[in-house]
Structures are given as structure tokens and as C-alpha cells.
Design a protein around this nucleic acid. Structure first.
Lengths: 203, 203
DNA sequence: CCTCGTATCTGGACACTGTCCAGTTCGTAT
DNA sequence: ATACGAACTGGACAGTGTCCAGATACGAGG
């Protein structure tokens, strides 16, 4: 049947979406998405400047697709870290999750920025595959945090929000150069310890 | 002497920098800085599309100037909140500071985004007036946090980083629509309480 | 096997943008 | 009053996103 993955580069490219995505990610490694040019992406993919329009109706549609792909990678990094720390302490698992999040963000700052740019992913109702991805990320975060603070602690939602915010802000401040990268792991550990501590205080 | 503020709108505008800044901020209230057009700013200021080039050598120079102005406002909002909560508890003062930060960010999301965009304010060495502004912000944060966790607690630096990260990430996630605005104040309070708790645990 | 419809891709065109250039107007020091 | 220099103007050029009509190639139906 071979649905996709033709990969013969004739007139009909075969899998332009993937090629464009790869080219765009290469561009993202060099510059922010604000100055990412559709024509340059097409050029790197070896097609005319108009080919992308047949797969993405718009520049912002391409950006949105990139955001989904990036979010998928970010989620995968976190899941891998969680799997790697399977038998560990609850604190250690939470730290591993946070370090995976910030680590991926710092390693791919521009891709990270696309995910959370309100101009590309409209606030409120996430469209396309973004919704499930975000939901899944919130799910693994919530379960990890719940294991951290103990099921008896009252408001697990606030703890999730706090941990996500901390880790997210940390990544942002590091990529913006306001916090040294060396402070990453200690800061994540401090957040998770404090969260665990406050949970026990409440009991 | 009257150095500036001529404000007669003849051929020589008199105070174009301020006019451009105001026009740009109006634009920022409507759209992100990625799609902010120099020509549109000039149009709104009532000058030719080339006038800005005599005051800012570059589009990114204008963006940088905007970032400085925005940072100045963000700092002022925090200082005002701190002054308003002068006699209060250490926790209450820290909460007031965090709420001021996030509140200003949520009220002016696009201006907030300019400040922390690595593409406009180069990471590492802040140029122009940005350095002192950031330093002052870090100063008032550090003193507030130090009063919160007690001077005996060992690592005040980590606590500052954690609080800044939390509050910053919270603002970002709210403006991106991933966290409801109603969770803002409770989340800030939770962070500051947890920080105060962990400080006492260490003693 | 040939034909044909349709999805895919190409080239050209337009408005808009950032930026450079030469010219014009105005405040000011001599 | 005059000359100088700063502030501003209009025009030009390359690059961009987007729309349009035309060319190409794959797959189905005869």
C-alpha cells in the first residue's frame, strides 16, 4: 500500500510536508521563528516558493504545524526521562521530569518559543493536534506531582500549576540569558523539594 | 533651555522618539512585536516611513528601545506594589511583588514578550539601559525574598531564581492560555508560602 | 494500453516590508 | 544674515507573503 514515504524527488515530491518540517526545524536551529521565511524553507526543501501553499494554507499554518511537532518532541523527551527514572524516588522522578523539560527547551530554544507563542497557537482553544499533546503533558505532570506531594494534600492542581510555571519560567529565563544554565538542575530540585515539603506541612 | 518637549508638529517634529514609542506601544496592544511594522509605526506617528531611521538605526534598535521602556514600566509596577504593601508581612510583600509582575505581564502581554525575546535583547550582555533595569529588578526581588526566607537560610540565590522563574512562567502560561487568569494570585501565594516554609525547614 | 481527471508543483504578479540613497527643510552658531 | 548640520522627505531596491493561471505526473476507468 505504502501510503507515504515515496521519497523520489521528481516533480511530485512525495512527502513534502516532512521535508518542509525538517527544513523549518533546521532554520529554527539558526534563527527565531519571527524571521523564519516561507520562501527560505521552500528553497531548502528544494521546491518552488509556492509549493508549501498546497499543504499549509498559510504561513501561520506552517508555524502551527511546527509547534505541534515541537510539542510532540518535548513531550517525548519528558516521557523518556520518566521511563529512565522508573524505580526512583518521587522527588527524583519529579526532578527528572523538570530537568527533561528545561533541558529540551534550552537545547532547542527557538522550537520551544514557537510552542508557547500566543500568535501561533491561539490562546483558549488549541486547534489541531495541539490540544491532546498539551493534555497528555498536563496528565504526566499531574500524576508525577501527585506522587510527590502525597495524595492526602488538598490542592494538587495548584501544585501542578506551580511546578509547570517554575520549570517553564526557568527555561525561558535561561534561554534569555538572565539565569545561568548551571542553575538549572539545582533550581528544579529546589522547586520539587519545596513542593514536597509544603505538602507534608499541610498534612 | 528647554532641552526636549517642543511638541510643535512642524517639519522638525521635536520629540519623535517619544511619539514613535507611544505609537509602537499602541501597536503592541493590538498585535505581537513579530508583525510590528516600522512603516506602520511611522504612519501612526504622522511622519514619513524613513523618519525613524534618524533616531534608531535599525528595526531591532527600535525593538530594543521598546523593550527598555517596557522593562521600565514593569519595574515601576513592582515598585509601586511594594510601596503599597510597606507595613505588611514578608509573605504579603512577596505576594504583592509577584502579583504585580504577573499582573502587568498579563495586562500587557505583547510588551512583556518583547522584554524577554532573545532576538531583541541579546542574551548574555544586556546593552543600553537594559542592564541596570534588570539589575534593579533582581535587587528588589532579592531583598524581598531574603526577608521572606529569613537571613539565616543558606542559599538566597536559588530562592530568588525559583521565585522569579515561577512568577515569570506563570505570566507566560497565562498569556498563552494554558493557565486561567484566576489561578494567578493563588499560585503566586503558593510559591511564596512554600518558599517561606522551606526556608524555615532549613533552619 | 490509452485517456482523462485531479492533486501537486511551477512561474509570474502584486502589495507590503526593511533599508539605502540623494535631496529638502529647519534650528542654530558664527 | 549666512552657512552648517541635524531632522525629515521621497524614491528606489531586494526580499517577503499571498493570489493567479499554467505545467506536470500519478491513478482510475475505458
Amino acid at each position: 500500500m505504502l501510503l507515504v514515504s515515496r521519497s523520489n524527488a521528481s516533480y511530485h515530491h512525495g512527502d513534502l510536508v516532512a521535508a518542509l518540517e525538517q527544513a523549518a526545524f533546521e532554520l529554527l536551529a539558526e534563527q527565531g521563528h519571527a524571521s523564519l521565511s516561507l520562501r527560505e524553507v521552500a528553497r531548502r526543501a528544494g521546491v518552488s516558493h509556492n509549493a508549501p501553499y498546497h499543504h499549509f494554507g498559510d504561513r501561520s499554518a506552517l508555524l502551527h504545524h511546527l509547534a505541534e511537532a515541537a510539542m510532540s518532541r518535548l513531550l517525548a523527551a519528558q516521557q523518556a526521562a520518566l521511563a529512565r527514572a522508573e524505580g526512583a524516588d518521587a522527588v527524583e522522578r519529579a526532578v527528572a521530569l523538570g530537568v527533561a523539560y528545561t533541558g529540551w527547551a534550552v537545547a532547542n530554544p527557538n522550537a520551544f518559543a514557537v510552542i508557547f507563542d500566543p500568535a501561533v497557537c491561539v490562546p483558549g482553544q488549541p486547534t489541531g493536534a495541539m490540544g491532546p499533546l498539551i493534555a497528555e503533558n498536563e496528565r504526566i505532570l499531574a500524576t508525577t506531582i501527585k506522587a510527590l506531594i502525597g495524595s492526602d494534600a488538598g490542592d494538587g492542581g495548584i501544585a501542578s500549576v506551580v511546578s509547570w510555571s517554575s520549570v517553564h519560567g526557568l527555561a525561558q529565563l535561561v534561554t534569555a540569558g538572565h539565569v545561568p544554565e548551571s542553575a538549572l538542575e539545582p533550581a528544579v530540585r529546589a522547586v520539587m523539594s519545596a513542593l514536597a515539603g509544603s505538602g507534608h506541612r499541610a498534612a
